[in-house]
Design a protein around this nucleic acid. Sequence first.
DNA 1: CTATTATTCAACTATTTGGTTGAATAAAGT
DNA 2: ACTTTATTCAACCAAATAGTTGAATAATAG
Lengths: 113, 113
Amino acid sequence: MSQKLNQIFSALADPTRRDILMMLLEDDMAVTDVAEPFDMSLAAISKHLIVLSNAGLILQERRGRVKWCKLDTEAIHAAFIWIQSFGQLDPMNLDSFEEFLETEKLLNKPGST
Amino acid sequence: MSQKLNQIFSALADPTRRDILMMLLEDDMAVTDVAEPFDMSLAAISKHLIVLSNAGLILQERRGRVKWCKLDTEAIHAAFIWIQSFGQLDPMNLDSFEEFLETEKLLNKPGST
DNA sequence: CTATTATTCAACTATTTGGTTGAATAAAGT
DNA sequence: ACTTTATTCAACCAAATAGTTGAATAATAG
């Protein structure tokens, strides 16, 4: 579980990989097509895709000589849940929650207890 | 912005650092107290705290010879927003959304277009 | 002033990461 | 069969990461 979160967060820590995920939001893609917009070798993209796959952020399925990549929501969901549970952020009221935290920050100076 | 997300996610990718954040959820702590439960040198924890601080996940404030660490919600909020915008996850309806995605998975096989 | 406590710095090490290139494999197309 | 297309493998490299230890700095206590 902790190990899985390690993989998910470190996969998300790379901007190329986040871009890939965004691209896959549009549609499933072959490895070559994923690589196309990047100024980077195909092998490098292939490695990024393996990292994403190991983290459970994408699924890869070979069809003939093409390997299709598609989003897998499982991992992103796990990350989402972790962050959500962290500090009981209320996603429906982020703005007001933010205000609350701003107030907290002012009131709850370190050492004030 | 992208750079900030890099820092936030890679800070969250380490289990020691996630543990530290969880500890700080309880209360603000001095560096030495943060280090106490870990089987690791103080210097190592100090470095982890600097990583968390650089990512904007915590704030550190020196009071006398003690440096207090407290959560900063700014960064976790940014990560939350990124993930939330990703795939338009509706946090209030995660279960039904999950079901939706399961259905999508079955219908939207790669190469089905 | 001296000792103690809290924290960081500096130097070093091992491992991981993100990239490269060229060769290898796999599946079609002709 | 031969060629092209899609992807990965293997070997390599530079930089970053996570840890160590011992010395240095900073502030408080006696």
